[in-house]
Simulated scan of single mutants.
Amino acid sequence: MSDPPASATTRLNKRLAELGLCSRREADEWIARGWVRVDGQVAAMGLQVAPGARIEVDPRARGQQEQRVTILLHKPVGYVSGQAEDGYQPAAALVQARTHWRGDASRQRFSPGQLRGLAPAGRLDIDSTGLLVLTQDGRVARQLIAEDSGVEKEYLVRVSYALPQGELTADVQRAFPREQLQRLRHGLSLDGQPLKPARVDWQNPEQLRFVLTEGKKRQIRRMCELVGLKVVGLKRVRIGRVVLGQLPVGQWRYLGGNEAF
């Protein structure tokens, strides 16, 4: 029996990620530790695997994953989601023992080791506030930020409207054309690509509620600009089934064992 053509094989770290077992980075770590076997043999780094290959993962890898934490932070304005830039601090700098929310029902205790490899799963720009997920778990990261992710993100967006006579900041809903609201829901493009359909409705006369399943850079602000709206304030209140709730600004809690996105 001949070997499958190279085009039919997939790099092992990618296959493990596609199976939802881990992120590619975690997969490389597992392979380096000898925790992954393919067709009964310990896998080498960079191995290409055929579609029908039997992949086994050592229980030690699962145990390591179970110890990894996912943190929900109420990011304030003025912090960047990822690496420090232009003198601004990363949101992860707020994850400290003293900022751990007292209302956290998880009963987990903070330790400095939980900061190792902690990375944002998605972005929330410097001028925005609300729910930001930071995780050590590659499965969570992939679920939220992979290209094929369909996890909903919900935002409350305070807006003003540009009129010939000036900027309207009160009762924007009355002046804003319904056909433009429909364009926000479906019909806009960014970076030369049409956006996926979104749910957009008025929460009150000055505030819109957006529900998106994608996350292009500064997407909501750019969408609003295309229809003459200016974002005055933006707050993310939900990711999937996890809500911001009563979590205070600048504080954080653990994702509970009974919670999932």
Rank of each mutant, 00 (worst) to 15 (best):
Q64I: 03
Q48I: 02
G233R: 15
R33K: 14
R185W: 08
V95K: 01
A50L: 11
L208V: 14
V242M: 05
R37H: 13
L12S: 03
L184G: 01
R102P: 08
L244H: 04
T135R: 05
R253F: 03
E85T: 15
R62Y: 12
Q207T: 05
Q203P: 07
S160Q: 11
R139C: 02
L118F: 00
F210P: 04
I145V: 04
P197K: 04
Y161S: 02
V57H: 06
V140P: 05
K230E: 15
R209N: 10
Q182D: 15
L247T: 01
Q136T: 09
K153H: 05
R199Q: 15
R37I: 07
A93T: 13
C224Q: 03
V140I: 09
L156K: 09
P90L: 04
A141G: 07
A260D: 14
S160P: 08
A260W: 08
V242W: 01
R116D: 14
P5L: 12
V77A: 02
K153F: 08
V232Y: 08
G150T: 08
H186K: 13
E56Y: 02
G122Y: 06
A17M: 05
V227Q: 13
F261V: 03
R178E: 14
H186S: 14
R253E: 05
R123H: 00
G228E: 02
L156V: 12
R183Y: 13
A84Q: 08
V172N: 01
R221H: 10
T99G: 11
G240A: 02
P76W: 03
H100F: 02
D127G: 11
G87C: 05
Q96R: 15
P4Q: 09
R25G: 03
L156N: 11
G130T: 01
Q173D: 12
A97P: 10
L21H: 06
G103I: 02
R209P: 09
L73G: 04
D39C: 08
Y254G: 08
R68T: 00
A141S: 09
L73T: 01
S81M: 06
A198V: 01
E152D: 12
S7N: 09
Q83P: 01
Q48A: 14
L226G: 10
K14A: 10
N258Y: 12
Q143G: 06
G215R: 03
L19I: 09
E26R: 01
P177Q: 09
G122M: 04
Q173M: 11
T135E: 10
V242I: 13
Q48E: 13
V249I: 14
D104F: 09
E167C: 10
A260Y: 06
H74E: 09
R199H: 13
E26P: 01
F261I: 04
G228W: 00
I220D: 06
L195C: 06
V157D: 04
V49W: 10
I31D: 08
K216C: 04
T9I: 07
T169H: 12
R54K: 15
D201I: 12
T10V: 15
N13Q: 15
V249E: 11
T99H: 15
T169R: 13
E167Q: 14
D86L: 11
G46E: 02
N13S: 13
R238H: 04
R107A: 12
G117T: 07
G256R: 08
A50V: 00
A32I: 14
V200G: 00
R11N: 02
L208R: 00
R102F: 10
P4V: 13
L212P: 03
V42H: 14
G103R: 05
V140Q: 04
R102C: 12
